[in-house]
Design a protein around this nucleic acid. Sequence first.
DNA 1: GGATGGTCACGGCA
DNA 2: CTGCCGTGACCATC
Length: 635
Amino acid sequence: MEPKLESLEPFESGFSLNPNPSFSPSVPVAQSNGVNAVHRLDDDKFDGSEMNLNANNANNFEEDEHVNVDLDFDEDVMDPYALAIVPVAEDNQLAHVESAYRRKPPPRSAELVRVTNLEIEDERYFRELVRRTRILYDSLWIHCMLEDDIRRRNVMNVMSGRVPRARGDMKVAALMRDRGLWLNQDKRFVGPIPGIHVGDVFCFRMELCVLGIHGQIQAGIDYLSSKQSSNGEPIATSVIVSGGYEDDEDSGDVIVYTGHGGQDKNSRQVVHQKLEGGNLGMERSMHHGVEVRVVRGFKYKGGIGEKVYVYDGIYKIEEYWFDVGKSGFGVYKFKLVRMEGQPEMGSSILKFAESIRANPLAARPVGYVSLDMSRSKEQVPVFLFNDIDDNHEPLNFDYQVTTIFPPFVYHNARSTGGCNCVDGCTLDCVCVKKNGGECTYDLNGRILRGKPIIFECGPFCSCPSNCLNRVSQKGVKNRFEVFRSMETGWGVRSLDLIQAGSFICEYTGVVLTRDQAQVFTMNGEDSLVYPNRFGERWAEWGDFSQVYSDYVRPSYPSIPPLEFAIDVSKMRNVACYMSHSPCPNVFVQLVMYDHANTAFPHLMLFAMENIPPMRELSLDYGAADEWTEKLAICN
DNA sequence: GGATGGTCACGGCA
DNA sequence: CTGCCGTGACCATC
């Protein structure tokens, strides 16, 4: 078998595999777990001289195993990485643990590796690793920011004046770093990073550091320093193009990238640049034919801030020269050319989606079957697009915005009553108490963590419609498109960037009781969806057990298994066209709001990653043998 | 009142 | 220690 990792010859570092084992957690590798299995990379797959990619990846998928960490404190005190529910430690113990966390991490690895011939199951493994890490980062960010909102409100009640918002991006990165949850810290990738796909969108530069895509939080050129390099030469591995330099020229496949240095605090070029540091690293990478990753940062509507970062793939440095820039000072310029055989650039897809939103027919003259298959039933139009054959099937179904339950479900709906809040619902609200006494959504309607079931305020509550505890009942906000594809038949994608944690839509249809469903099945119909088969992916969103040792998994209230089926043979909505994936970007959250029968909750779908425009949405429909596994590789 | 620009407090890494 | 193709939040200004 071909080796998967290729040490880069001129830069053999000679570093040991694990330069600082006292900091590196030894991690049990993920084990097979039914449909959600992630592939294990065995040690013997790798030549002894090469890195085991798993060696230092601290993401632990197994819920009932503990990570063994060789830190300095007494193991009897407590295990800071305990994943099960543990008793809350006393303050002095926590302080002890915190100080252990604060130990300085080892210097960055000097080992340069390039991945080759990644097999499909390995690709899946790494994609899953990245997916879990991003889920943790994004959900933890929402959690930290909401906590900060509450803190600020309390502080402002006591004293007036400016109370700046915390930097959630940094806070989350620090929490994860101190627990060894950053990826790819034990090696440096040249070229693609396993599990990171062209077109992946990130909201923070810090997130790029956490994932090992680009290790610099400020500088645009990431490079192995000359000190660490075995031959004394710096080697550049990635750049961020964010338009910060006036002499940049970016035409997509070709970039003229300005070297760094010589700018003052106001980003004005005030002295000549020198061929050192990152600039020299770029020159040396060109000399050795080392490709660089390119991440573009630009303003885009729909991100958390106004800026997003998109991984655009790998580029070769073709030439460089010293030039006099617009400022009159000398700058280094590097011509980067995108390498062949990569998927379409994420940044151009984002721009294409923008143009479709502005003027669909001008951007794509052919392929529209309908400009709103919901026939104005949704608040935003749902496109139906097919440019590969003449199948118009989705138009044969009635579009159904919300699920139709049997009438008996609504009997006594009013009996449980609603809340009496007159303003926004706070922690005293009876509906909030039903959710375990914690906020369910943040101020932007992003879900904090998945639960067995969620109670939103409903028609019998007296709170206003802008109450924070009303999100999924308000319907679709993003512009979706049902599209025809060779791989998955029909699929769903969004024209907007969807932030992780955002509500997407309900999974609608006509609800049948178990008895009705049996009759239906006997008649040979095959258009039933069984809610109890959906993978319990809600448990992955907002699971902080790796971060907070006293974290308790949400289990309240427990509900009996769902026994109803959803008939989508006549009425359905956009959700019905979502494809199955073992590593989905959408999860199902059960939600109650308009009646009191918890045996018949609404199936609400939320994003569990930042989903770029035009990327297919996918759900875990459950056992793979019952559903065609439509996506060969997750996205 | 949406864009723009300044300032502030941070951060990892070379 | 410094400085980085700053970042992201916030506020004043246009």
